[in-house]
Design a protein around this nucleic acid. Structure first.
Length: 592
RNA sequence: GCGCCCGUAGCUCAGCCUGGAUAGAGCGUUGGCCUCCGGAGCCAAAGGCCACAGGUUCAAAUCCUGUCGGGCGCGCCA
């Protein structure tokens, strides 16, 4: 874009680019000699009447020089060469826009690039090879993934691919919360169900995991170990009343965990604990893999405990952690957090925060230029304390970005599906995938900005008809395939030649051509903003433009130059649809 | 109460970061298009005080302030 326009010699000016924006740096010869940075844009026009690109520099300059923008625009245009290899004309319009009209060959060149670059078309050097670690999903291995995790999975996987295409070195990681209280509660839940299978009668507490999967794990435990871990339930519940559970449910559970550990002994407890962890984690791995979500590393929290101890020690020595009311606190309030936070509970157990510190520290130590966390929006209050502790440890908090994903609400048509984790009746990611298919699930998850609440309509996602965007796009791709099959059946040949492309002249052909050349810009924009939804929207537009072209024109016409040109256009569309669909993890089916 | 996110067509949402020319799409509604490469498609119409009120600007859906709605968070939970 920069090559398209040469700026007039306004003092000592030069152009540089910053992000996706061009800057004009000029020495402003005013009363005092100083350098002024002008930010102006050369951007795509929406209305073809305004040419291909529009520049607002005259309006920006007009403000600075206190001159009429329209006059300035005319002067700038007068000093530009009237045309060159790519530019047909440059005109002033409206309040002072400088509109640039391109020669068709400019677009034809890009089409050729697409055909040559193939799946590499759209790739960028934007990231400059910088390394990024993306951590996402990281659900506690206490149960199967649900539809909320699905959104994080789809978003994270698409973002990873997007950044990779944009020139970053990307690694994906799943953090396994395999220690801590929640896991103990899982072990307890499994054991309680196991006791029931052994024939014990007991009152199942409300705050433990109740899903059917707990039964399954307990059944395995019972099958493999028979009554080896059985203890009378009276011993377990001795002195614990229903009122006590009601009044302080947390300490009620903690007591049960302690008794469970005492009654079983360390080795047996470990067996129960490990079985639950292994079974659930394996289920999560398989679920994500089937969903097309791949990780470079699965990082267990348990591995971090020594490092966490060391960091707690370090913070204490630096006076950034202190004892109060039997617990160890971090002075996060010194670093933009509202209050201090507990690192080690009164009962001696570390909080998740303590191991999280070690984990984030460890990630930065591994040398990534940037570290991205994708969290559910309900965790947003947690961000300041993580950034605080990184600052306290002497790291630059800017190296960490936390992206928040809002909740997904499921609908079946008009009906809103209620999800309740406690009862275990939540909708699992697996059941969603089974119902609507991976492609629709991936597409629906990423088609909205992640900070937007997502209404996920199962009926719509499932519909193989008119109103489902995913089928609309895939159908477009299948159509491009079919055209070439048809050509083959007719014994015809496609011969690409730049000269043939001159025969493309209709509005539909031109619009499609322009849209195809925009793909790299969409990649850049989406990558900069961490917004894969831009790709989904672009693909919708592209499919629409292709369908429109297809309906209005016959591709396999008799005239060879025109037929070849339209086939080139079709092939390029096919390629870009493929690249885009692949990026967001959706398949490009050859027939539907 | 404090903090973060959201409020745009009947519905679901883009556009907001980086202010520009008549505010865009899909669904739904209404009306057209199949001797033709797959009609799972295309074309067209109707539909908007961009939540509200101020401010900044030549120019505000976009930036600033306030108000009102909705969601989430504010634990020795994760």
């Amino acid at each position: 874009m920069q090559a398209l326009i040469q700026l007039p010699p306004l003092s000592d000016s030069h152009i540089c680019s910053k992000g996706d924006k061009l800057l004009l740096v000029m020495t402003h010869q005013g009363s005092e000699d100083r350098e002024t940075v002008l930010e102006f844009q050369i951007e795509r026009t929406r209305d073809p009447q305004h040419g291909d690109f529009a520049c607002n520099v005259a309006m920006i300059l007009g403000k600075l020089l206190k001159q009429a923008p329209q006059q300035l625009a005319k002067e700038i245009i007068a000093r530009l060469p009237p045309e060159n290899e790519w530019v047909q004309a440059i005109k002033m319009a409206g309040p002072g826009f400088i509109n640039i009209y391109l020669k068709p060959v400019a677009y034809h060149r890009v089409l050729e690039t697409i055909l040559v670059d193939k799946e590499r078309y759209g790739r960028h050097s934007l990231g400059n090879g910088k390394s990024v670690l993306i951590e996402f999903v990281s659900a506690n291995p206490t149960g199967p993934l649900h539809v909320g995790h699905g959104r994080g999975a789809a978003y994270g996987a698409s973002l990873a691919r997007l950044l990779e295409v944009a020139g970053y070195q990307v690694a994906c990681e799943y953090y396994i919360n395999d220690s801590g209280r929640q896991m103990d509660i899982l072990a307890l839940s499994v054991w309680l169900r196991y006791l029931e299978l052994c024939g014990e009668t007991l009152r199942f507490p409300t705050k433990v995991y109740q899903g059917d999967y707990v039964w399954d794990i307990a059944a395995t435990l019972h099958r493999e170990h028979r009554d080896a871990f059985r203890h009378p339930s009276d011993q377990l519940f001795a002195g614990l009343t229903e009122t006590e559970e009601h009044n302080s449910p947390d300490s009620f559970i903690d007591t049960l965990i302690q008794r469970c550990q005492t009654l079983l002994g360390a080795a047996a407890y470990r067996t129960v604990f490990e079985l639950g962890l292994t079974v659930i984690l394996e289920d999560i791995r398989r679920d994500l893999q089937e969903f097309g979500v791949h990780y470079d590393q699965w990082f267990p929290e348990s591995q971090l405990v020594p490092a966490a101890e060391a960091l707690l020690e370090k913070l204490t020595q630096q006076g950034l952690a202190y004892q109060k009311e039997g617990a160890l606190w971090f002075r996060s309030s010194l670093y933009d957090d509202e209050k201090d936070r507990v690192l080690r509970r009164e009962n001696g157990q570390m909080t998740y925060f303590a191991t999280d510190i070690a984990y984030h520290w460890e990630k930065l130590q591994r040398g990534f230029d940037h570290v991205i966390n994708i969290w559910g929006a309900d965790h947003h209050g947690y961000i300041p304390r993580i950034k605080a502790v990184l600052a306290a440890l002497g790291a630059d908090p800017q190296r960490l970005s936390v992206l928040l994903v809002q909740f997904a609400t499921l609908y079946r048509g008009k009906e809103r599906l209620q999800m309740s984790t406690r009862s275990g009746e939540f909708v699992t990611l697996r059941s969603l995938r089974e119902e609507v298919g991976n492609d629709a699930a991936r597409f629906f998850y990423v088609q909205r900005r992640c900070e937007q609440h997502l209404n996920f309509d199962l009926e719509l996602a499932k519909s193989h008809t008119l109103d489902n965007p995913i089928y609309y796009i895939q159908y477009g791709y299948a159509r491009t395939i079919k055209v070439f099959r048809r050509l083959q059946e007719q014994g015809g040949q496609w011969e690409h030649n730049l000269a043939y492309l001159q025969t493309l002249a209709t509005p539909q052909e031109r619009s499609l051509l322009i849209l195809l050349t925009r793909y790299p810009e969409v990649i850049a924009s989406a990558a900069c903003a961490y917004e894969p939804h831009q790709i989904a929207h672009y693909l919708r537009d592209l499919a629409q433009q292709f369908h429109s072209f297809y309906e209005e024109h016959r591709i396999l016409v008799e005239e060879m130059p025109l037929r070849n040109a339209r086939l080139s256009l079709t092939a390029a569309t096919q390629q870009v649809l493929y690249n885009g669909l692949t990026l967001i993890g959706v398949t490009a089916p050859e027939e539907m």
